[in-house]
Computed example of a mutant assay.
Amino acid sequence: MSDIDERPAARVVCLDRDGRVLLMHWYDEIAGSDVWEPPGGRLEPGETHLEAARRELAEETGLPGSAVLDRHVEVERDFRWLGRRFLKRELFYLARFAGQRPPVDPGELTEEERSAFRGHVWAEKLPDGVEPADLAQVVERLTADPR
Rank of each mutant, 00 (worst) to 15 (best):
V21I: 15
G19L: 01
T110E: 07
R118Y: 07
P146Y: 00
L23D: 09
P127N: 08
W26K: 10
G41C: 04
P38T: 14
D128S: 13
R114F: 00
L43Y: 07
T61Q: 02
L23H: 09
P127F: 10
G62N: 06
D145V: 09
L15I: 07
F86M: 03
W36T: 00
L135R: 03
E59M: 05
R85E: 14
A144S: 12
S2F: 11
K88A: 14
Y27D: 13
W122L: 05
A9P: 03
R17F: 02
V73R: 07
R147I: 01
K88R: 15
E124T: 11
D145Y: 08
E76D: 15
F92R: 05
E112I: 10
M24T: 05
F117A: 04
R89N: 13
V21C: 09
D28C: 06
G46Q: 05
G19M: 02
R114W: 02
D16G: 07
L43V: 00
G83R: 08
R141A: 14
V68M: 04
G129N: 06
H49Q: 03
M24E: 07
R7K: 14
R85V: 11
A98V: 06
R89H: 14
K88H: 13
R11P: 00
D128W: 10
D3Y: 13
E124D: 11
R7S: 15
A136M: 00
A98K: 11
L135S: 02
T110L: 07
K88E: 15
E140H: 04
Y27E: 15
Y93M: 07
D18N: 09
P45G: 01
H49V: 00
Q137D: 14
R77M: 15
E108V: 04
Q137Y: 01
V21E: 08
E37R: 12
T143S: 01
E108L: 14
H25M: 03
E47I: 01
S66A: 14
R54G: 05
E59N: 12
A95I: 04
P39Y: 10
D18M: 03
T61L: 00
M24Q: 08
P64I: 02
R11E: 14
T61F: 01
G107E: 02
A95M: 11
S33Q: 14
P102T: 06
G19P: 03
T143E: 01
A136K: 04
R55C: 12
E112R: 15
G99Q: 10
L57I: 00
V75S: 12
V21Y: 08
L109A: 04
D78R: 14
D128R: 15
P132H: 14
R80I: 06
C14V: 02
A58F: 08
G119T: 06
V73N: 10
A95W: 12
G129E: 09
Y27T: 11
D105A: 13
P127A: 07
A95C: 08
V68E: 05
R114T: 01
W26N: 12
E113W: 11
L50H: 13
P146A: 01
V35L: 13
E60P: 01
P146M: 00
V12Q: 04
V35I: 12
D70A: 15
I4G: 09
G41K: 06
V75F: 12
R141Q: 11
A31H: 14
R89D: 12
R96S: 05
E60G: 03
V13L: 07
T61H: 01
D18S: 09
D16N: 08
A116Y: 04
D145A: 10
E74K: 14
L69W: 00
R42K: 11
D70V: 02
T48S: 15
F97K: 04
E29R: 15
V68K: 03
R11L: 13
